[in-house]
Write a protein that binds this DNA or RNA. Structure first.
Length: 569
RNA sequence: GCGCCCAUAGCUCAGCCGGAUAGAGCAUCGGAUUUCUAAUCCGACGGUCGGAGGUUCGAGUCCUCCUGGGCGCGCCA
């Protein structure tokens, strides 16, 4: 089924042709409800080049516009805007179609892509911290949305499991490890030995030297060191999995940096052979002399000591994703500081004539109340686990205040849905590039643009169904719209299908979040103005159907953001 | 020095390809409940969109410069 936007755009295009004008005409949702539901500004643009007045030109379009089955007669307003107001019967018909549609009107893409999305990317032997929320939650939401739109998506966790820090971790493991501590809290113990080793290395050159040796041995395939490294990876992966389980995140593949190790020498040889890379100060570099911003910023692909770095790994990763995974689209979701790096990687891919769409999807940081990077009082990163635990505890406290007659199991389950939902939504409801201030009180509030507010709208609907003693079928009774609040809600429901595909234009899940907030707001207004269970027969079933459709859009919309809904709260 | 990102109401933030009188939420103030979760709704107050030029019929949005903040720039990832 088509959206109103698509239907009206087609009619507009036909009218333009009849009026002897070029058919392309953009038609957008009205900027204000005073101007109806949709508007077009074509007359403004065309009038200039045709030396006519915009209003006269708008009139000639309206004269031949045929859309009486969809909207009222178009109105000309202001400088030459044409406004369209949907007819109630067209809305009713559209809602009936939406109710029957499992996809709630959202069309599958006509150009499916083979996407690999790289997000999360935690580091082995380090705890996940608040900073990981953004990439993880944003990437997951984009993956869900792309999948729903019909793209072929592989979710890849590019784990930081290789690098110079392992020299210190291995030396610390051999000299400082407390086995009991490792058993009770593996990551904390790994961090402890890493930090201690790092401190000792700063003071004692011999330790520094020993760490370097351990690293060389690891890279050379020494069995003992390799086994230690493997255990570190396994312990970390276990820790990650627990976080992902709480967050409701899953991956299709988890290819760490180490996965690409044996591909690195060939890459450097290839780039040298093709002349893209050259030796400079002992290192092998790719220069971008023809790009002004990059002219003085070479990309090192092999260090002067012969070692490889993450640029080489990322080139290998591009190869793997395009050749082995057969992807035509690569999305990498990481913080803004890595922009230069990926600009270089993508530029190298372009120079090697790799045919694919590359997008570095950047995001801002999470700030504390002091507007600086969120840290603990002692200046450490805030552990992700602590944040998630506290979210659940705080949600639970609120539930206990508001709703005491719930059993223990249900309370725990709902606290998780609300607490985790609140954290995710706080992130996703904001434009990804803005640094945002982390605030428990704001994200867990039932007022304003928060997850609990949206979840509450869903819960109120389920409560109606419980009282009614029935769960209305998806393919519901005829919907008829009489009250103003019903019409507002109906229009919102129709917009879901217009909003969802637009999210991927610029990777902005906050567009969906804002929509869902407005939907919930419209529902609450409807709820206040229009009694459901106490209304008479035809109205009652119509309103139940409207509730059902609202619940489904809320459920689906939140699901696309990776957020769950409770049945009660 | 070079480059990237950000700057919108007291606070936290929306504002996709340029479109009409710049929108929410919080806070403040004032209303609404014998009624399906008041965990809500309605209203009021609140703005030289960091500054200055420019392009355009039309700029929060595009271009240039400036100010202020964040970040990045050959051998960490």
């Amino acid at each position: 089924m088509e959206t109103f936007q698509a239907l009206l755009a087609l009619r507009l295009s036909e009218a333009l042709v009849r009026a002897g004008l070029p058919p392309a005409g953009d038609l957008t949702p009205a900027t204000d409800s005073r101007f109806g539901d949709y508007q077009t500004n074509v007359a403004l643009g065309l009038a200039k080049q045709r030396e006519e007045t915009p209003r006269a030109l708008a009139q000639s379009v309206c004269d031949v516009f045929d859309g009486s089955d969809l909207c009222e007669r178009p109105q000309i307003a202001g400088a030459g805007f044409i406004n369209f107001t949907l007819r109630a019967d067209a809305l009713e018909k559209q809602l009936t179609g939406l109710a029957k549609d499992e996809r709630l009107g959202v069309a599958r893409t006509e150009a499916p892509r083979r996407i690999v999305i790289d997000f999360g990317s935690p580091n082995v032997a380090k705890p996940m911290h608040v900073g990981h929320i953004r990439s993880t939650v944003l990437g997951d939401a984009l993956a869900r949305i792309a999948t729903f739109l019909g793209h072929d998506v592989i979710r890849d966790n590019h784990i930081g499991d290789w690098g110079t820090q392992f020299g210190m971790v291995i030396w610390g493991w051999k000299n400082l490890l407390d086995r009991a501590a490792l058993t009770s809290d593996p990551i904390a113990e790994l961090v402890r030995i890493y930090k201690t080793t790092n401190e000792r290395g700063t003071a004692e050159p011999a330790v520094r030297e020993a760490c370097r040796d351990e690293l060389v041995r690891l890279q050379a395939g020494d069995q003992e060191n390799f086994a230690i490294w493997q255990e570190c990876v396994a312990l970390s992966m276990h820790e990650f999995e627990r976080a992902y389980q709480v967050l409701g995140i899953r991956y299709d593949i988890q290819r760490g940096e180490s996965f690409y190790n044996d591909r690195l020498p060939a890459i450097v040889e290839r780039l040298q052979a093709s002349g893209l890379a050259e030796e400079s100060e002992g290192a092998i570099c790719v220069f971008f002399r023809d790009i002004p911003e990059l002219a003085d910023k070479p990309c090192i692909i092999r260090k002067s000591d012969g070692g490889y770095n993450y640029a080489t790994t990322d080139i290998a990763t591009v190869d793997y994703r395009l050749d082995d995974l057969q992807r035509d689209t690569v999305w990498i979701v990481t913080g803004a500081p890595q922009q230069l790096h990926f600009r270089q990687i993508f530029e190298i891919a372009r120079r090697e004539d790799r045919q694919a769409d590359f997008h570095h999807i950047t995001h801002g940081s999470i700030l504390g109340e002091d507007r600086k990077l969120m840290k603990t009082r002692s200046g450490e990163n805030v552990a992700l686990k602590d944040v998630l635990d506290e979210a659940i505890v705080r949600a639970r406290k609120i539930i206990e205040e508001k709703n005491s007659e719930m059993d223990e199991a249900e309370r725990a389950a709902i606290a998780q849905i609300i607490g985790i939902g609140a954290v995710k939504y706080a992130d996703l409801s904001q434009y990804r590039m803005t640094d945002y201030v982390f605030s428990w009180d704001r994200m867990l509030s039932f007022q304003g643009n928060t997850a609990p507010y949206l979840q509450n709208a869903y819960v109120r609907i389920q409560s109606i169904f419980r009282k009614a003693g029935e769960q209305p079928a998806d393919d519901a009774d005829k919907i008829s719209l009489s009250d103003a609040a019903e019409k507002v809600l109906a229009k919102r429901l129709c917009q879901f299908a217009e909003i969802v595909p637009a999210i991927l234009n610029d990777f902005r899940p906050n567009v969906l979040a804002n929509y869902l907030f407005e939907l919930a707001n419209s529902f609450h207004a409807f709820y206040e103005a229009c009694p459901v269970l106490k209304s008479e027969k035809p109205t009652r079933s119509s309103r139940l159907a409207l509730c059902k459709l609202t619940a489904r859009v809320l459920h689906r919309g939140l699901d696309l953001l990776g957020i769950g809904v409770p049945e009660r709260m």
